[in-house]
């Protein structure tokens, strides 16, 4: 009685060889795989389609007018309008962000990785603070700029205010990326340097930082590219107007590409949408080019120890 029971529950064992060659079809398995693949295709498909649509929409505006002409609030002048002041404003702001944010971010990361004793409560607080800042909505940074930098410090709605606010906004990005790059430098390199009588700063500046350069560069470029695309804090900082001149100093009024795009969008006339699309293509070209460089640098120069 028992023998037949066994053979029915384990049919394969009666003929093990042939059981292995029978490829069992598993419909659930295939459906799952296709579903996952579909997710990926949808993600890419939709994003690509939307970007392509923007390109088509802005096609008529993709010429030299975009960077040689100024924006205008008059529909009648739209034909000879561009976004020069916004492009120049963006370049001003981003150069200042690089000058302000990168040294502070890289120095903070060096402090946290090489100097700070992570058992101390204040260093742990510092770390948590940075992680939290990374997740604070950008518009809150706009409020910081409005309340403290523009009004209390009296810097007003100027290029420098915008640059400071965006610097603080992307500071956590630089810090976190730099820390990771520094952490990837093996401890043995530091020990070898110390054992030769090098000081801490000699060790950091001559051994650790040179090895961490690719990671730091990647993080810095990504941070700058994020700052280029940010509009929300600048809205709060009163940048939503038609500015028809290029900034000429730190205390100059300004506009910037994402803010200019927003201003075009808020106009109801269809011609503005076309100009907005053209400006978006310009913005995307800058941002995506920067990100590509960053990702390339990371993948190409990343050191494997």
């Amino acid at each position: 009685m028992s023998a037949p029971t066994i053979t029915t529950t384990r049919p394969e064992h009666s003929a093990p060889g042939s059981a292995l060659t029978q490829r069992r079809s598993r419909p659930g398995e295939l459906a799952f795989r296709l579903a996952m693949q579909a997710c990926l295709l949808i993600a890419f498909g939709v994003l690509t389609a939307l970007l392509a649509w923007v390109l088509v929409k802005g096609w008529n505006r993709l010429d030299s007018r975009l960077w040689t002409e100024m924006p205008t609030g008059l529909v009648s002048r739209l034909d000879t309008a561009g976004v020069q002041s916004a492009l120049v404003g963006t370049l001003w702001i981003i150069s200042l962000v690089a000058v302000i944010c990168l040294p502070i971010g890289i120095f903070s990361a060096i402090y946290l990785e090489e100097y700070a004793d992570s058992n101390r409560w204040y260093n742990r607080l510092l770390e948590l603070n940075i992680q939290n800042l990374a997740g604070v909505p950008s518009i809150i940074f706009g409020i910081l700029g409005l309340g403290i930098i523009a009004r209390t410090l009296g810097l007003g709605f100027t290029v420098i205010t915008a640059a400071i606010v965006l610097s603080l906004l992307v500071l956590p990005v630089v810090i976190i990326a730099t820390r990771e790059a520094i952490r990837a430098v093996p401890q043995s390199i530091r020990q070898a340097s110390y054992a030769l009588g090098a000081t801490k700063w000699q060790t950091v500046s001559r051994q650790v930082l040179p090895s961490a350069v690719p990671g730091i560069a990647t993080g810095s470029i990504l941070a700058l590219s994020r700052a280029i695309g940010e509009a929300a804090p600048l809205i709060v900082l009163g940048a939503v107007t038609f500015i028809t001149f290029n900034p000429d100093g730190l205390d100059s009024r300004y506009t910037a590409l994402p803010i200019q795009i927003y201003t075009f969008i808020t106009r109801s006339q269809a011609e503005y949408a076309e100009l907005a699309a053209g400006a978006i293509v310009l913005l995307l070209a800058i941002v995506l080019a920067m990100n590509s460089i960053a990702i390339f640098v990371r993948n190409r120069f990343e050191k494997r120890w």
Binding site: S188, I189, S193, A195, L196, G197, A198, T199, R206, Q207
Partner: peptide, 27 residues
């Protein structure tokens, strides 16, 4: 005055020359 050689060889990711010259330079 009291130097150290480690368990795993840990040359700096620099040239042979710079590896040797590093100590005299930093000190």
């Amino acid at each position: 005055r009291i130097g150290m050689v480690f368990q795993k060889p840990n040359p700096f990711p620099k040239s042979i020359y710079d590896n040797v010259a590093y100590g005299p330079r930093v000190t």
